[in-house]
């Protein structure tokens, strides 16, 4: 199903927001405003937004350590996300989560897991929960090519298939698990083919093509909502930056020409902009959206900078929902 004009605009707006958000980070890191490491989603925008545009607001998602793109793709406000990266009290996780855990439950995110593969059972369980509660919600699980080598991936595909759970397993295959090429760790290169072992649909899609990702995800979501069970989607994508910024990692694990080739010819924003122009959107309209994204991120950075740091005395807050003490 193709997106309508207003949904195309919204998709482009979310892709731009992810790009501008990520591009603002190196400066903040250099200024000492963002502690720790960040994992950039640049290059993944079409995969993330294409998938989320196929979901309803009340559908669930889980994400990964590369967690900034998921909430933005699902429609989260930027300011609490940026404040979280700066460790502020106004952050979406009140400064407790940081870059690898940007979960905003108000848009249906139930977890961003920094343990590779950790979100897979959470998403599968959310699907089970929807089934038990009798809603028609769908749960979509983002994970990477690296996570598909975790045992829990196979456990959950099997259980979701056996119990026909409303789950979409969505692999962002960016070809590298941190620095290790998937080609050296997967017995065959296509994650989607693993679906055959569980007798569920497994589809490969061009992760740089937003409309293609949306169409594929839309079909999988519709199938899940009809009660016909899970699907596995593999979006072939690419991260334009190194695995992480702000942490010592042996960089340049990929050939410079390979990275350059993706940046020059497989940039999901450039590709979608061309698509939008062909679909009749004007350059003026698109430039306006691009400026808006820049200023929205600038506002988010400003909000974060002006926000208070958490009070050290509050460090135990949110450890328990029901923090029972021992009665003397």
């Amino acid at each position: 199903m193709t997106l309508q004009a207003d949904r195309r605009r919204e998709a482009y707006r979310r892709m731009l927001a992810i790009r501008a958000f990520e591009q603002a980070l190196p400066r903040c890191i250099a200024a000492g405003e963002i502690p720790g490491a960040v994992h950039s989603s640049i290059g993944h925008e079409a995969a993330l937004v294409g998938a989320c545009m196929a979901l309803r607001d009340d559908d669930y998602i889980t994400g990964t350590h590369r967690s900034h793109g998921h909430p933005i793709a699902k429609g989260a406000r930027l300011a609490p996300l940026m404040a979280e990266l700066m460790g502020r009290e106004t952050g979406i996780c009140k400064g407790r989560g940081g870059s690898m855990h940007l979960a905003d439950t108000s848009v249906g995110i139930i977890g961003e897991s920094a343990i590779v593969g950790g979100g897979i059972p959470l998403a599968t369980g959310a699907g089970l929960s929807a089934l038990v509660r009798g809603t028609d919600q769908v749960s979509l699980c983002f994970f990477g090519d690296g996570a598909s080598n975790q045992g829990v991936f196979h456990e959950c595909l099997n259980m979701a298939a056996v119990w026909k759970l409303p789950v979409v397993f969505f692999c962002e295959n960016n070809l590298y698990a941190a620095t290790t090429p998937a080609l050296s760790t997967h017995a065959q290169p296509d994650v989607a083919k693993r679906a055959a072992g569980y007798d569920i649909p497994g589809v490969i899609v061009d992760g740089q093509d937003l409309e293609a990702v949306h169409e594929t995800t839309h079909a999988a979501v519709a199938r899940a909502r009809r009660g016909e069970g899970p699907s596995l989607i593999e979006a072939k994508t690419y991260r334009f930056d190194e695995h992480a910024i702000g942490i010592f990692m042996p960089s340049h694990c990929r050939a410079a020409e390979e990275v350059e080739r993706y940046r020059a010819s497989r940039d999901p924003l450039a590709l979608y902009r061309e698509h939008l122009l062909r679909a009749g959107h004007g350059d003026f309209e698109l430039s306006g959206l691009e400026r808006e994204a820049e200023s929205a991120v600038a506002e988010a950075v400003d909000f974060a900078r002006k926000s208070p740091h958490p009070d050290p005395a509050s460090v135990f807050d949110h450890l328990y929902s029901n923090p029972i003490g021992c009665v003397a």
Binding site: P121, A123, G125, G127, L128, C156, M159, V162
Partner: peptide
């Protein structure tokens, strides 16, 4: 209400956590 699980302790324990977060 009862889910007789395969021998997948990590998977079904995590699923229970996902179900707990979403209302069960």
């Amino acid at each position: 209400r009862t889910w007789n699980a395969p021998i997948s302790e990590l998977g079904f324990s995590g699923m229970a956590i996902g179900a707990a977060i979403t209302g069960l």
